[in-house]
Amino acid sequence: MNTLGQRCRNLRLLHKWTQEELANKIGVTKQVVSNWERNVARPEINHLISLAEVFDVTTDYLFCIAELKGQVLEQEDLNLIGKNITFLMEHFVSPLKKRYSK
């Protein structure tokens, strides 16, 4: 299973963009894109949405969730899915709950 970083790199190369070109398209630095592709960091929600838009894919695809139906998963895949779900909860769901539970 690919990681979000691998997906970003593959999509960027498919579009024949440099890291700097992708960075300029979504308003970050080349180093930020490099960190994402090396799985050193993950994009914030606004950058994740921008990535999905410039690549013309879904955020589910970037998180490697879209093609999981019917697959037999290895433990490594399950661990990655768990990390992705945790990330989604911490960065997207929790802030929304805090904002609207007042």
Score class of each variant (00 low, 15 high):
17 W>Q: 09
17 W>P: 00
17 W>Y: 10
18 T>E: 11
19 Q>R: 11
19 Q>H: 03
19 Q>E: 14
19 Q>W: 01
20 E>T: 13
20 E>W: 05
21 E>V: 09
21 E>H: 10
21 E>Y: 05
21 E>L: 09
22 L>R: 02
22 L>T: 01
23 A>F: 05
23 A>D: 04
23 A>K: 06
24 N>P: 00
25 K>C: 07
25 K>G: 04
26 I>W: 06
26 I>P: 06
27 G>C: 12
27 G>E: 09
27 G>L: 10
28 V>L: 05
30 K>R: 15
30 K>T: 11
30 K>Y: 06
31 Q>M: 13
31 Q>F: 04
31 Q>Y: 10
31 Q>V: 13
32 V>F: 00
32 V>E: 01
32 V>K: 00
32 V>I: 04
32 V>Q: 02
34 S>A: 14
36 W>R: 00
36 W>I: 00
36 W>L: 00
37 E>A: 06
37 E>F: 03
37 E>G: 09
38 R>W: 02
39 N>G: 02
39 N>S: 09
39 N>V: 01
39 N>W: 05
40 V>C: 04
40 V>T: 12
42 R>V: 01
42 R>Y: 05
42 R>L: 08
44 E>Y: 05
44 E>W: 01
44 E>I: 08
45 I>Y: 14
45 I>R: 14
45 I>T: 12
45 I>G: 10
46 N>C: 07
46 N>L: 12
46 N>H: 13
47 H>W: 08
47 H>M: 07
47 H>P: 00
48 L>S: 07
49 I>E: 15
49 I>S: 13
50 S>V: 07
50 S>D: 15
50 S>E: 15
51 L>Q: 11
51 L>W: 05
52 A>E: 13
52 A>I: 09
53 E>K: 15
53 E>P: 00
54 V>M: 12
54 V>E: 11
54 V>P: 10
55 F>P: 08
55 F>E: 11
55 F>N: 08
55 F>K: 08
55 F>C: 08
55 F>W: 10
55 F>M: 10
56 D>K: 13
56 D>M: 10
56 D>S: 15
58 T>K: 14
58 T>D: 15
58 T>G: 15
59 T>C: 14
59 T>M: 15
59 T>S: 13
59 T>Q: 14
60 D>H: 11
60 D>S: 13
61 Y>K: 12
61 Y>F: 15
62 L>W: 04
62 L>C: 06
62 L>F: 06
63 F>V: 00
63 F>P: 02
63 F>R: 12
63 F>M: 14
64 C>L: 04
64 C>W: 02
64 C>Y: 05
65 I>D: 08
66 A>S: 14
67 E>G: 14
67 E>P: 03
69 K>E: 15
69 K>V: 08
70 G>S: 08
70 G>M: 07
72 V>Y: 04
72 V>F: 04
72 V>N: 12
73 L>H: 08
73 L>C: 05
74 E>T: 06
74 E>Y: 06
74 E>N: 07
75 Q>P: 02
75 Q>Y: 06
76 E>F: 05
76 E>D: 14
77 D>W: 02
77 D>G: 03
77 D>Q: 10
78 L>Y: 03
79 N>P: 00
79 N>Q: 13
79 N>E: 11
79 N>M: 05
80 L>Y: 02
82 G>W: 01
83 K>R: 06
83 K>V: 00
84 N>K: 01
85 I>C: 03
85 I>K: 03
85 I>M: 10
87 F>N: 03
